[in-house]
Design a protein around this nucleic acid. Structure first.
Lengths: 238, 238
DNA sequence: GTTCATTTGTGCGTATGTATA
DNA sequence: TTATACATACGCACAAATGAA
């Protein structure tokens, strides 16, 4: 079995990126130019680019061109005390998080169960998007009991940190109770929100936070770009 | 934007699988038959099948045909006390794990660091593959200090369980110290080992286990089929 | 605001290679 | 050996998004 055409160009571009011959943000030649240069069909070029996009090494943008990705992989540490900002900022990453929407809804079953609420109880769904160096890395929703935290989203927006917001509700400390992670392919709208190619998979992270005595205070479901994050867990306190 | 051709057939097959009209193990029509039936080109059919394979819903086998996947997604719980067998067997899954090879090697830097050994110390690398209901779900290597656990792999093979093997070395209990997870696309040989399509991504899980006092006893690097597993973590003891 | 060239996205037809039974 | 079915590959046409004239 001789090497397939498309893997040759994939590996060459990949090597050029690693070696620094192509650097973050650089525009690649167009598909036709690459096809010309490597003397292969455009299909093979597209296949190579698709593979690189899936690995998060390049970013393909219709109508504009193809660029070397400029988003290094983050390490996100999940531990007993998981804190977004304390986690990412030490990596020299500028982390911001924006409130997209906040609505009161009747809790879906799995949300009610996670928060130990009666089925159909009112919860506050806060949808947020997280950016690292202005690049989206994750988005999703957190759910809080609407009775206990009626204006959680507003306070969170003003205070700028989840830890401070809980404190304003009289909760001095909180811990991660449960986390689950699985990988799947991205839906078109998810890819759009994360400003990434549809072919890049996502990691779906579901979590439950609680007060130190074990009372659940929030549950969340967050979609992460699989190419932009590595999760680590310290089982001995975090 | 009207729906793309290939998403139509992808969604129809996906629906047929969910509804039970196609059941696990069933063979799908050939690509040409599907192209005929949906009145689209074979390229579009292949694209749809590729997407389904990537999600783990079907299994494409060159020369044989395309089949509905018969491997449900496992839930693998990572906790302070992570135990493969205790984890998977309660799900009604028949878990077996086979020793592929066991060799003494000079520890690569990251292995030596994880085990707190001197750079270049001898370690035992045990390569294993894990099957659930006879389908491969993961494979990888565990590393033990060769001085302390000279015949770990042999004992593990005879005793059939890691917990019992440690016990035979006088270690009554061990805990998970650290775990990291990231997603990437599969390499051709990894896909082959996992008997899955190259397009299905893998999850790379690196872990360190230790005695309860925090002394590292093993580190491992395991490649999981992203389509066949969900990881969950209980931060309060596991 | 519109038009136009550029660039990526979708789609079809066809030929040939490779793995399996 | 032969037939079947998936894999790779090329060429071509047109659609859709972007950005500049």
């Amino acid at each position: 079995m001789t090497r397939e055409n498309w893997t040759i160009i994939r590996d060459e571009i990949s090597r050029d990126i690693r070696s620094g011959r192509l650097s973050a943000g650089d525009q690649l030649p167009t598909e036709l130019q690459l096809a010309d240069r490597f003397e292969i069909g455009r299909h093979s070029v597209r296949r190579a680019l698709e593979a690189l996009a899936r690995e998060g090494k390049i970013s393909i943008e219709q109508g504009r061109g193809t660029f070397v990705a400029d988003t290094p992989r983050l390490t996100y540490q999940i531990g007993k005390r998981t804190r977004l900002r304390r986690n990412l900022i030490p990596q020299g990453v500028d982390v911001t998080s924006q409130l997209v929407s906040a609505v009161r809804v009747a809790a879906p079953d799995e949300i009610a169960q996670a928060l130990l609420l009666n089925s159909g109880a009112q919860v506050l769904e806060s949808q947020r998007i997280t950016l690292a160096n202005d690049v989206p890395v994750a988005f999703g929703s957190a759910y809080h009991c609407a009775e206990r935290f009626p204006d959680f989203a507003e306070r969170r927006d003003v205070l700028g940190s989840t830890t401070d917001t809980y404190r304003s509700f009289g909760i001095e400390d909180y811990v991660r109770l449960h986390t689950s992670i699985y990988s799947r392919s991205a839906k078109p709208d998810e890819a759009k929100t994360l400003k990434q190619h549809v072919d890049v998979p996502v990691l779906v992270v579901t979590a439950i936070d609680a007060t130190p005595d074990g009372t659940p205070i929030s549950t969340s479901r967050v979609i992460w770009s699989a190419a932009r994050v590595t999760f680590t867990m310290e089982q001995s306190d975090g």
